[in-house]
Amino acid sequence: MSISFDIATIWAFIIAFAVFVYVVMDGFDLGLGILFSLFPEKADRDVVMNSVAPVWDGNETWLVLGGGGLMAAFPLAYAVLMPALYTPMIAMLIGLVFRGVAFEFRWRTTRAERNRWDLAFAGGSVLAALAQGVALGAILQGIRVEGRQYAGGWWDWLTPFSILTGVSLVAGYALLGATWLVMKTEGNLRDKAYRLSWILLFAMLGAIGAVSIATPFLNVQYAQRWFAWPNLILTAPVPIAVAVVTVMLLRSLAAKQDYRPFFLSLALFALSYAGLGISMYPYIVPQSITIWQAASPERSQLFMLVGVAVLVPLILAYTAWAYWVFRGKVSSESGYH
């Protein structure tokens, strides 16, 4: 086993970890925006915003790490994926910009103007989540590559499958947002979040089932990876674990527990992410480019690995500290103004 293999694999896991942490930490944040219009009362909306105010603007750190790491560690993959995904990526960035600006400006305007910024916050959240899911679907369905460059068209990303993954991610983020509110709020707002969590859980399970059924039909290699023997021994635990976590989540919602629904929802995301990794590995551009073919020179990856080894633990430490300091329930009297 060569050093090049080891370093490329390590970097693949680093980027996968960064993307997953972003999904975990910004997913419930986007989910709150997706659900925002369902809370028409100003007091409820203020509590929703305050529940995430101390941590929301640090979540995109992981998105930058994932994108920057992809460009530096796997430049060929970056050069192929970005032209294929320009439209959904630009849409995602526009959505995130609207969210960030709306978050700050809604506190500094009149009531009529605030309603406009509330709409921008909700719309930006839906747009960003939908664009991320569409981009994921576009990658999974395959990207046309000739030589070392993208060979497809401007609209290749837009297919029924990519729309399915986009809607699925919106439903998943909304579930994270609802269970976050269960954990962070009290009273009528918490009760409404419980009711939404039930609906969104079944929506997410339906989405997981639909994507899982559709994926093997995209390419024969996906079907072989999941269903061929002896791969079945390694892949079968994933759907079994999804079923177990689902039962636990249903029980926690029925018992009206505060913390378990959120963390069990994160477990569903983790299992879905593991399924995505099973489908794709070792390809970074599915069916076209492996992580070793896309890797930058070994010296470059080693140099960057030193920086990541220092920075990632620091980022994790201050992020954990921020969540610890602002733990507990949020009331309408406290928070961000």
Rank of each mutant, 00 (worst) to 15 (best):
D6F: 10
D6K: 04
F13W: 01
F20W: 14
G27T: 01
G31T: 15
L32A: 03
I34Y: 00
F39M: 09
K42N: 03
G58E: 05
L65E: 12
A72V: 04
P75E: 08
A77W: 00
M82W: 12
A84P: 13
Y86Q: 12
T87V: 07
M89F: 07
A91Y: 02
M92T: 03
I94F: 05
G95W: 01
V97M: 07
F98T: 09
F103K: 12
E104M: 08
F105K: 06
R111G: 05
E113R: 00
R114L: 02
W117P: 14
G123M: 06
A131H: 01
Q132C: 11
A135V: 07
A138W: 00
E146Y: 14
G147F: 11
R148A: 04
R148F: 15
W155V: 10
F161A: 13
L175G: 08
L175E: 14
L175V: 13
W180Y: 04
K184R: 14
G187F: 13
N188S: 12
L196G: 12
L200W: 06
L200G: 11
A207W: 04
G209C: 04
V211E: 15
Q221T: 14
W229G: 08
L232G: 11
L234P: 15
P237F: 00
I240M: 03
V242D: 06
V245I: 04
L250C: 09
R251S: 02
R251W: 10
A255G: 12
K256Q: 02
F263W: 07
L264H: 03
S265W: 01
L271H: 13
A274W: 08
L276E: 05
M280I: 01
A294M: 00
A294P: 13
A294C: 08
F303A: 14
T319L: 00
W321R: 09
Y323S: 01
V325P: 10
V330F: 09
E333W: 08
